[in-house]
Design a binder for these strands. Structure first.
Lengths: 229, 229
DNA sequence: TGGTTTTTGTTGCCAACGCAACATACTTAC
DNA sequence: GTAAGTATGTTGCGTTGGCAACAAAAACCA
């Protein structure tokens, strides 16, 4: 699949944290790991597909999305390099996905056809145990992220959604000023709002001195007080 | 804590699937498992609390909720007997929760202060491995459930939220007719909608012959066609 | 039993925001 | 360069659905 050479940096991937290259290669061989290249706008899985791989974004950006019959897309999660996805099928491999995985920018993805191997293998080796722990951590993290996403969607007004999102980003970046991985259209899709309404509200918030922004870079100017909205 | 005797049915809990009573008792001892009774309307964890236990609902109902400063509650997930919660802290035990866990009906909850033990223990025993696999499955399942919840919230109209929810319930119950675990107020909180608006819309949908219902029992009268809404 | 609380249903009002349509800026290609 | 495509901003209009306030029914309890 990969046309030009691509050399992944396995040691920097959370999934393989704590393993050395030798162990990683073992794992890759044992589970028949395969790197695939996906061009922008491709789909890795479509809603309805059977999922049989654990996937790791090595490079690029993948979006977990839900499309309605008119092609309106809702972005559920944005997955950058290092992210693991389709992990929610670990318990039920082969099941059909209700969401799609969309390639937002040219990506390299490690596909691990785990099957039931993960569960069956007599994993007494240190590496296997470590891998298992990593998987638990990653699953837990993704869980937390989904809960945070839910928190945003729960908000009733557009403004409070925006603020909730901004505060999460500020927290994750450790700064009140940050750059988001979305353009306006995608931000609207992520917040499940209308693009024009979003722009309108952002302008208002800037007027009122709550935030400032230029393109994808935002600055939160307020204290935490308004969070309850 | 427990005033009157309560004997849990450990063998029926997904977390302990595949273990026999002897193994379960080992695990419980090793991790200092503790059963706590919580009366209705209590909080197990409040948003902001440090979480250091993996929790299992043995009896009753617990809700994962997010409250805004006016006490308006949004129900993120409904957790019945057998459900595991606070599992998203496995990777980061001791972190603060952004959501609260609310006791919807008198409950017995198994608290497992896993700490780092789960990761540190040299788990060569068959039981430990099995437990680890169960945890992965459960995490994956909860993940899937959160994604499904997100799907509901993504919908733009109230009617499509209701339909999305109903279709999930129908699927989970394997029948177009089912009883939901919510009263009207809580269903509204679960769908992030206004109670009166919900009642209004339900009435309309009944008029149009889309659904029928009596109290908490609903029947979906339509084919899947309208799902795209 | 009757009173109190909780749950559910009903309705009028109105604003937030989705929608559509268009204007303007920016980006890419040739 | 210019043309085509894409991202962003602006605005008027109209509907959905949130809100509040009340009515009715059901559940609870003393």
């Amino acid at each position: 699949m990969a046309v030009k050479m691509y050399t992944p940096n396995y040691l920097e991937i959370p999934l393989f944290q704590g393993l050395d290259m030798e162990e990683i290669n073992e794992v890759l061989q044992k589970f028949h790991g395969l790197i695939k290249h996906f061009p922008k706008s491709d789909y890795i899985y479509l809603a309805g597909d059977c999922v049989e791989n654990l996937c790791v974004v090595l490079e690029g950006t993948v979006q977990m999305i839900k499309e309605d019959i008119w092609g309106e897309k809702a972005i559920i999660a944005n997955l950058g390099a290092g992210s693991v996805f389709a992990e929610n099928f670990l318990g039920r491999l082969g099941d059909r996905s209700v969401v799609s995985y969309f390639v937002a920018s040219d990506s390299e993805v490690l596909m691990l056809p785990l099957g039931r191997m993960l569960f069956d293998s007599n994993t007494n080796s240190k590496a296997s145990q470590r891998l298992m722990c990593n998987i638990v951590s990653i699953l837990a993290d993704n869980n937390t992220r989904l809960i945070e996403k839910t928190e945003i969607l729960c908000k009733k007004t557009l403004r409070s959604k925006i603020l909730a999102y901004m505060e999460q980003e500020a927290r994750n970046n450790g700064s009140r000023s940050f750059t988001i991985p979305f353009n306006r259209t995608d931000l609207a899709n992520y917040l499940d709002a209308d693009r024009s309404a979003l722009t309108r509200e952002l302008a208002r918030m800037r007027e009122e001195g709550l935030i400032d922004y230029r393109k994808n870079t935002f600055e939160l100017k307020v204290k935490e007080h308004n969070e309850g909205l």
